[in-house]
Nucleic acid binder design. Structure first.
Lengths: 351, 351
DNA sequence: TTGCGGTGAACAAACGATTGCCCTATGTTA
DNA sequence: TAACATAGGGCAATCGTTTGTTCACCGCAA
């Protein structure tokens, strides 16, 4: 059992409040040097650390943040979490991680628990358009930041990338390679990234004077399995695409599988472009051409915004939007894989 | 600001303790039906949830667990975390995630913070042999469980696999394929998995009457970059191995890169076997032959053990050791990749 | 009328820290 | 010598719950 103020006070023959002031280095404290020394020795000897729970109750701050995401086993969210933790830990905060598997009810349940625990703030990366949970957060006056996806355009603190621009870049790249029948593995229309990336895809086609074929857009969701199914469907139309833009890298991974199963060569028979540039993208064979976004910085920026909001009560700027960048690899352009050489090494993981 | 007991009590014209008892459904409570109804209506109307911090102070339990790992972006730990959360959430616990990057000082700092926060228990997956942090946990009487690695043989609550057996299986597999010069990308001798897997490797060689060549064992650590460097070194010896057993899958991924850079074909020129069977293993080309361990179950078993310890004060059994199983894929045996067909789908991730 | 048992709730003491205010010596000044 | 600063700490309220104990009241029986 860790030592308490009261016990220390008894041992030092002083009042607990005095020990507290010494421990907290109260600036306005007048105290005899000998007393201070005696108390400090005791503090060191017992390795006293104030009970965080009691402190939280009194000071109304827990020094805990929460991160709510669909699934940490998705490399995108793992990298995001690292960014958040790296931003929060140096400032004394620790981070609760909540996986929702994309199920609104689980998200709701987690948020309610988090509110009951009085976490100081929430970073939410699993929101969808018109998400009632976000309205609830607003109403609760819980500090929060949305990441990657937003719920209502422009009203919430947000960190993400310019999805329309990223999708446009990706599609223009395929157009530039001479593709005309370009498919899209699309995210759900209930999610901002799904909507905006589809919009960017369509904008690029329109700009190039290519008439959009509705058969070439298939909803895949954001994960591997959906990507495989949707790709399979795309390859079954009477005149299949020669290239696809997948709404996320994981979706593209699914597409790889589906293409390979049909004996298609990438990129000769089918060019593929993804979105996010997760670590896995460069390890695929061929490497996945994708839209790079600074995932780790999403996290650290979100943490910074959240902490600013918590500590100062105000927030400026309210939105951080990174410009995405195309990374060309072998999945769209044969022989392009050497562009990988010299990319910065990843943060070192360890078993 | 959420509503408090005191406010509710004022509105219901009763004492706070009465509201508390109604909210907690105190079995021994005698109360007039009308009063109870009035209070219950108020509880629902205000969506009252007791302040978890105050509750934690009074009850001396926070309903928070902590997971301490090297790095969540390593797929092994991501899967492990899911297992833990899936075991903890249904029982009302939420989980703090702490990344140490394998740095003892960061681990120490996190554990101190966690103790100050009075987390109910800790799951530690980043320990090493004779880890002072584990001794500290014991001394603090903080409930804890070690996962995957242990600190001192047999003394701590532990969940993991039989590393010697797994390594033996892997090596025997290579021997069975006719390999004689078999290398080992080894973990550090300061970590239990490093020591035991090396021991299993050596045992298999000895049993087959193959004399161990010290040049064929190179310390790689547990991550990709180390694997690449160590593999490079192995391929530089005067008579390079025709097969290697890598201490983890991530190390094997590094080996893939190194081999490919030299133009070696896998498995024809170099057979590779890994350990852990992370999701990435089956997506590599060729698929990575590896020692399968139930990562998700590591997590849920650890959570169960920890909760038992927390809630009952005792722990039985103290050790859960899973028997590992070899999964043969194309990295050791050409044409073996079809053994992948029909493997259970992964848990659905989402962007 | 007194006593008693049962109802229905209030009281109050924790849990461990923080912090504004008060109190008592002692020395200083007028 | 009376008034007053100042130094050095103690007091007590507070954060929001939980829970063992006490209390007031009512009806009923003796």
């Amino acid at each position: 059992m860790p030592v308490t103020l009261k016990e220390l006070a008894a041992r030092a023959q002083v009042h607990p409040s005095t020990v507290s002031r010494v421990a907290n280095n109260d600036p306005g404290l007048r105290i005899a040097a000998t007393t201070r020394t005696r108390i400090e020795a005791l503090l060191r000897e017992t390795e006293y650390r104030p009970n965080g729970v009691a402190r939280g109750l009194k000071l109304r701050q827990t020094l805990v943040l929460a991160v709510v995401i669909p699934d940490i086993t998705n490399p995108f969210f793992a990298a995001l979490f690292r960014g958040i933790e790296d931003g929060a830990t140096p400032r004394g905060y620790q981070v609760l991680l909540c996986n929702t598997d994309g199920i609104p009810e689980r998200q709701r349940a987690h948020l309610h628990s988090l509110a009951a625990r009085r976490v100081d703030g929430v970073i939410l990366a699993s929101t969808f358009l018109k998400d009632p949970a976000v309205r609830w957060l607003r109403h609760q006056r819980t500090p929060y930041v949305l990441v990657n996806r937003f719920s209502e355009d422009g009203v919430d603190p947000f960190v993400g990338s310019d999805d329309v621009m990223g999708a446009t870049l990706a599609t223009q790249h395929l157009i530039g390679l001479g593709h005309v029948r370009i498919g899209h593995l699309a995210g759900q229309p209930t999610v901002s990234t799904g909507v905006l990336r589809r919009k960017g895809y369509q904008a690029a086609l329109a700009e190039a004077g290519i008439t959009a074929d509705p058969d070439l857009v298939v909803e895949s969701g954001f994960v591997e399995e959906g990507g495989a199914q949707a790709m399979d469907q795309l390859l079954s139309v009477r005149q299949p695409p020669t290239a696809v833009f997948a709404v996320t890298d994981m979706t593209a991974v699914g597409a790889y599988g589906a293409a390979r199963k049909r004996g298609l060569r990438i990129p000769e028979d089918l060019a593929i472009v993804g979105y996010n540039d997760i670590p896995l993208a460069s390890r695929l064979i061929p490497g996945l051409t994708t839209v790079h976004v600074p995932i780790h910085e999403f996290g650290s920026a979100a943490a910074r915004m959240l902490l600013e909001q918590i500590e100062t009560g105000v927030l400026t700027p309210r939105r951080v939007v990174f410009a995405p960048q195309l990374v060309v690899r072998g999945s769209s352009q044969a022989g392009a894989d050497e562009q990988l050489v010299g990319r910065p090494a990843q943060r070192s993981p360890a078993e």
